[in-house]
Design a protein around this nucleic acid. Structure first.
Length: 641
RNA sequence: GCCGAUAUAGCUCAGUGGUAGAGCACUUCCUUGGUAAGGAAGAGGUCAUGGGUUCAAGUCCCAUUAUUGGCUCCA
């Protein structure tokens, strides 16, 4: 009997029934047989060794396909487990999935003590096992037999996983002496795994639940050859150079001090400058968009946060209150309640709406000590905050305008790698994590979705990520070391208007509650500048960079002319620094390059003679001689872009 | 908050139980040098903090603080 196999390019070939993707790959070419990791049969990723018994579509998956990589790393996780089981007695296994860059396995080591020092030893064992080229053998097994196997082995984690599986859908995979509960698929044999690096060891809660036991998670990455591993490690090293914590120190942007406190950054003059510039941009943009600026205190009485509903939902993230004259005061963790009070201070008519209140508000949040991270996760932060109060009819237009403002900013900063996420509520948590208004949730989530779709903005929908008062759009970005953060957020609030008794009089002379939009397109200064440092790798654009031009006299004989140039550029509004040190020009250039100053002017005898300047561009080198007028123009032109 | 690692000069780091080191930065002097580090001298540390073990602790142990890799959390 023969079957018809359809390939991705549309070609159809006939094979004997029961043939495997691996056989087909081998028939097609020897080298392909050595590269095939798994196969997509009728669009489902399967073992390359799975017999195909009916007509099917077939895609052979190699290292070049993401699904192939995932198979490879999944099998690598099993290899890690095999190594661990052979090295340590009494090891129990949780889960071991592939991830974006490699894989991990969560392990209960029992009485064994395993630390980062042991990774080399484990790695070596994995290499030995890989060299044995053990096949990954699939076996369908009844639930009863599976339970018996893991009961005998004493692995309560696998038993718990089995609990959630049905008879008939349970498979084991065995390679060498190691058998694991796994739905697969896997690569043909361990010999495909040529280079192995165990990256880190860390604690991880079983099933992600902090109330349950913490297992030991070992992260690793593997490749089909050594070169790819070397390239990957080099890439990581390069990424580390862009880390905002490193650049923040190098470029003197911010610092922490133990006596000031964890998560409380001190902005150095260069960082202070960046803040000024970003606020300047925000104020201009918000002025043009019809926002009004307000100012609010950094603390408020408990009553305010009881009214807003923040206290029951959010108390753990606030600094503990200070008590004065029997009244509790809190440092503000968000600006909205204050802004709501401003809205409510003066009676409103529909003719006043929309009202847009903006403030670069300073907030304090008591973040878990373990989650603090450079500038990206801090305890004192200043938010590009604003609240828009509008009618239901105005909502769509206002929400759309906010989204457009986001996109405008992203264009200015060249932000292209981000994910827009529609964060929705989780119905089962109504009344706990979310305000108990089931219809309003559905209605506003639909409103937000409609705006996004009609604006042609791609987005993902994610349940259980909403604010307690309404759905939101989050813009997710990644730090250079791969951590995900919400950069900006645009939230709908159908609840707080009522809570704060914010009313306006509508056309029919009846009182109504406004819908509120909370928005922070430029995030907080802390997270945004942290992000920008990594985004630009410290090379800020000319308009934003604290110092635009470094003037470097070749010797102090040329200080007069250099000062004259400096004054002229300053008079034209440029930010310059004059290096008066008695250092050689090479040294001055090196230091200016390290500080990533966009332009360097080298001034010596020739320049004084010709009344010109030699210009060097950061990262590019000498770009020639300019008159001062021409250099002015060059800068002006770059600023206009 | 939880599991692990780390903490030595402003920065990067060496120092495996016997009285503290390097490079860069800083100060002074010499050098006036043409596109990524000129030379010399000097100053700078209660080895994060507090306990403990020891004849002796930067070094070993414990706690605390901070940083850090993850997990959890994240309006």
């Amino acid at each position: 009997m023969s079957i018809k196999i359809t390939f991705p390019d549309g070609a159809v070939r006939e094979y004997d029934k029961g043939i495997t993707a691996l056989d087909i790959a081998n028939k097609l070419s020897n080298s392909l047989g050595k590269k095939i990791l798994s196969a997509k049969i009728n669009n489902k990723v399967c073992d390359a060794t799975l017999p195909i018994n009916d007509d099917a579509t077939l895609e052979l998956l190699t290292w070049n396909e993401n699904d192939g990589k995932q198979t490879f790393w999944h099998s690598s996780a099993h290899l890690l487990a095999e190594a661990l089981e052979s090295l340590y007695t009494g090891v129990k296994f949780g889960i071991g999935p592939p991830i974006d860059n490699g894989f991990y396995y969560d392990v209960d080591f029992g009485d064994n003590v395993v630390s980062a020092n042991d990774l080399v030893k484990i790695e070596k064992k994995m290499k030995d096992l890989a060299a044995q080229k053990s096949e990954y053998k699939r076996q369908e097994i009844s639930k009863a037999d599976a339970i018996q196997y893991f009961t005998e082995k004493g692995d309560e984690y696998k038993l718990e996983l089995l609990d959630g599986l049905n008879d008939g859908e349970i498979t084991f995979y065995t390679q060498g002496n190691f058998t694991d509960l796994c739905r697969g698929p896997h690569i043909p044999n361990t010999g495909f795994i040529k280079s192995i690096k165990l990256m880190k060891i860390a604690g991880a809660y079983w099933r992600g639940d902090e109330k349950r036991k913490q297992l030991t998670r070992i992260y690793g990455v593997t490749f089909p050859n050594q070169q790819e591993l070397d390239d990957y490690l080099l890439m990581l090293e390069e990424a580390e150079k862009r880390d905002h914590r490193k650049l923040g120190q190098q470029l003197q942007i911010y610092t922490f001090d133990e006596e000031v406190g964890p998560g409380l950054p001190l902005w150095l003059p260069n960082g202070g400058f960046l803040i000024e510039k970003i606020e300047e941009l925000a104020k201009k943009t918000e002025d043009e968009a019809g926002y009004s600026r307000v100012r609010t205190p950094h603390i408020a009485k408990e009553a305010l946060y009881l009214r807003s509903g923040h206290l029951p939902y959010y108390a753990e993230s606030m600094f503990p209150p200070m008590e004065l004259d029997n009244v509790k005061y809190y440092l503000k963790a968000m600006n909205c309640p204050h802004h709501h009070k401003i809205f409510g201070a003066i009676p409103k008519s529909y003719k006043d709406l929309p009202i847009r209140l903006a403030e670069y508000g300073t907030c304090y949040r008591y973040e878990d000590s373990g989650s603090l991270f450079g500038l990206m996760r801090v305890r004192s932060l200043q938010m590009n905050d604003a609240h828009i109060y509008c009618t239901k009819e105005q909502f769509e237009q206002e929400f759309r305008a906010v989204n457009e403002m986001y996109l405008k900013y992203f264009k200015i900063f060249g932000i292209e790698k981000y994910k827009m996420r529609l964060s929705k509520h989780e119905p089962s948590k109504l009344g706990q994590k979310y305000i108990n208004e089931p219809e309003l949730w559905i209605e506003t989530e639909k409103m937000v979705r409609d705006v996004l779709i009609s604006s042609n903005i791609p987005f993902d929908e994610v349940p259980d990520e909403a604010a307690f008062y309404g759905p939101k759009i989050d813009i997710q970005i990644y730090s250079v070391i791969g951590r995900e953060f919400t950069l900006a957020t645009n939230q709908v609030d159908f609840a707080q208007g009522r809570r704060f008794n914010l009313k306006y009089v509508n056309k029919e002379n009846q009182e109504d509650y406004p819908i509120i939009i909370h928005r922070a397109p430029l995030s907080t200064h802390e997270r945004f500048i942290g992000f920008l440092l990594e985004h630009y790798a410290g090379n800020f654009p000319l308009w934003l960079t604290p110092k635009q031009v470094a003037i470097l006299p070749i010797s102090d004989k040329f200080l007069d002319f250099s000062t004259q140039i400096a004054n002229e550029l300053k008079a034209n509004g440029f930010r310059i620094t004059l290096d008066e040190r008695a250092e050689k020009i090479g040294k001055k250039i090196r230091d200016a390059e390290l500080m990533k100053i966009p332009y360097m002017l080298v001034i010596g005898e020739k320049e004084v003679e010709n009344q010109q300047i030699s210009v060097r561009k950061h990262g590019k080198g000498d770009i020639g001689t300019f008159t001062i007028q021409d250099f002015n123009l060059l800068l002006q032109k770059e600023l206009e872009n």
